[in-house]
């Protein structure tokens, strides 16, 4: 039995009677990339928000490292090692790329009731931050104000910020959304490099990317998992093909 870092049990969330997640259960193994796919409106982003603590669940449990974190707020979950990226880029636009990441490092380096010393001169914030930027290939763009980075670079920056919190689990919400083919390819290779060292729960629409990266795939339809297994099993699953994959997944 492999190490389970995240266990989701019968998670449920409804918005005014519409179920966004419906008794969803899944487990993520340590060191694996677990992809969650499904059509638009399947409740994928809602699930991420519930796992990160941004949305309160109506019922169900989230176990992280064996601990029940269901009632915890986002900062507490982050502190325990859950990092997320956002489907719509969420960064600090006024800060440089490096400052963005340094702030993420700072969040996990004790409290921030430090009023006097200039944060920008602290090597213990900026060295790990630069390392995280290097991992995602943004080191040469470190001192550029985030607002002026390209869309693809924003997505990379999001990943660097998540990595900087030294997470045990990365929740990536469509890291390739809105990317061109070339940028997507770059992101796939970044995620491939993270594979093994990091545990990732990946939501993605780009099926080529998903099948290239994932160790495990869960298919979500109407907030419920209709199938879960190895990529080959999912590819072969009749129910999945009719419900969602259609020709797209089997084209190659």
């Amino acid at each position: 039995m492999a190490d389970i870092v995240l266990k989701v049990e019968k998670l449920r969330k409804s918005f005014g009677g519409v179920l966004a997640t419906d008794d969803l259960s899944l487990s993520v193994e340590t060191g694996k990339i677990h992809a969650v796919i499904g059509p638009n409106g399947a409740g994928k982003t809602t699930m991420i928000a519930q796992l990160a603590g941004a949305l309160n669940s109506d019922s169900g449990r989230v176990l992280f490292d064996g601990e029940d974190i269901s009632g915890m707020a986002p900062p507490a979950r982050s502190r325990r090692g859950i990092a997320r990226t956002f489907q719509i880029t969420s960064i600090f636009h006024e800060f440089t790329a490096l400052e963005n990441v340094a702030l993420a490092v700072q969040a996990h380096d004790g409290h921030s009731f430090r009023f006097w010393r200039a944060a920008r001169e602290e090597a213990r914030l900026y060295e790990p931050a630069l390392a995280a930027l290097e991992t995602v290939g943004l080191a040469d763009r470190a001192n550029i104000t985030a607002r002026n980075l390209s869309h693809g670079e924003h997505r990379q920056l999001e990943i660097a910020m998540a990595l900087a919190t030294k997470p045990k689990l990365l929740l990536l919400d469509e890291p390739m959304a809105g990317m061109g083919a070339e940028e997507s390819q770059k992101m796939v290779s970044i995620l491939n490099r993270l594979k093994g060292d990091h545990t990732i729960l990946l939501i993605e629409h780009d099926m080529d990317a998903v099948f290239a990266l994932a160790d495990q795939i869960t298919v979500l339809v109407y907030g419920n998992s209709i199938a879960s297994g190895m990529p080959d099993e999912i590819r072969a699953n009749e129910e999945v093909r009719t419900a969602y994959l259609g020709d797209e997944g089997t084209a190659n």
């Binding site: 990160a52 941004a54 707020a73 986002p74 900062p75 982050s78 502190r79 990092a83 997320r84 956002f86 969420s90 960064i91 600090f92 702030l103 993420a104 969040a107 996990h108 921030s112 910020m161 998540a162 900087a164 919190t165």
Partner: peptide, 8 residues
């Protein structure tokens, strides 16, 4: 929101 998500 971002601040919360990175742990502040």
């Amino acid at each position: 929101t971002r601040m919360q998500a990175i742990g502040f």
